[in-house]
Design a binder for these strands. Structure first.
Lengths: 129, 129
DNA sequence: CTTGACCTTCCAGCTTCTGGAAGGTGCATA
DNA sequence: TATGCACCTTCCAGAAGCTGGAAGGTCAAG
């Protein structure tokens, strides 16, 4: 398979696959005589794993660790769980931050008439009352 | 005031103030003969406004628009409210995305023993069952 | 006059791609 | 065989929003 085929099969764009190779998230692909990268079913599986991990918000670095654990038969599931738990904590932190922003914005917006007059509690709030 | 003073007074780091100037979010500061930037109370107020806006998640570009509206006495509050509303929608989208990630991670984690054995539903989930 | 805290500019790096330019390859069709 | 088109290659740059660091100038105190 060429890079375009594996891109279609895995859902990871060709450009991104090259990028992952360049940052060593995946090993260098084999090449044809003319320099084309070639892939097989294992590569597709690995890229799908990466895709799913990224879509759950794991950083590329964490995905590297997850890949290592995935391929390591002597792993302890505790290690994987620890990574996931830490990641969930980070997600919770972000959710809380966004919710706090949202609430403040809602409070300010509710008090704003939103008409063609200039007085605006949102701007006043941003200015610090 | 030098940049360090205004940084302290506004809560925006000196480096960041220079950056804001470089991207024209704020106008170029006046300079002393020796080239030092100088600031006054208006600048502090503006930087505080920027700080609060950024902490509510507005992009630097949006903050620029908000600053323009703030300084424009002929503004319609509807414009400000529209910006805020669009931003809230974006925040809601992000929250939903994070919550979906969180839920998937929770489901996978709950089924993972997290001990020293290798079998791990999290990795299985990432691999696509 | 020295010291130390400031200030200046400029360049690089972080994260994760993505777009585009310039040019080679592979296969089908006229 | 020539042409065309889709694909591939590498390399550079940009996006967002800073942040760190290097090299060097300035200012006020002691």
């Amino acid at each position: 398979m060429n890079i375009g085929d594996v891109a279609k099969a895995s859902g990871v764009p060709a450009k991104t696959i090259r990028y992952y190779e360049s940052v060593s998230l995946i090993p260098p692909a084999h090449r044809t005589d003319s320099g084309y990268r070639t892939y097989d079913g294992n590569d597709v599986a690995r890229l799908r794993f990466i895709q799913r991990s990224r879509s759950l918000g794991f950083s590329v670095r964490d995905v590297g660790t997850l890949l290592d654990l995935w391929h390591n038969r002597a792993r302890a599931s505790a290690e994987v769980k620890a990574l996931a738990t830490a990641h969930m904590a980070e997600i919770d932190r972000k959710i809380a931050e966004l919710q706090s922003m949202r609430e403040t914005l809602r409070d300010l917006s509710e008090r704003c008439h939103g008409d063609d007059r200039p007085d605006c509690p949102i701007l006043e709030g941003l200015a610090g009352r």
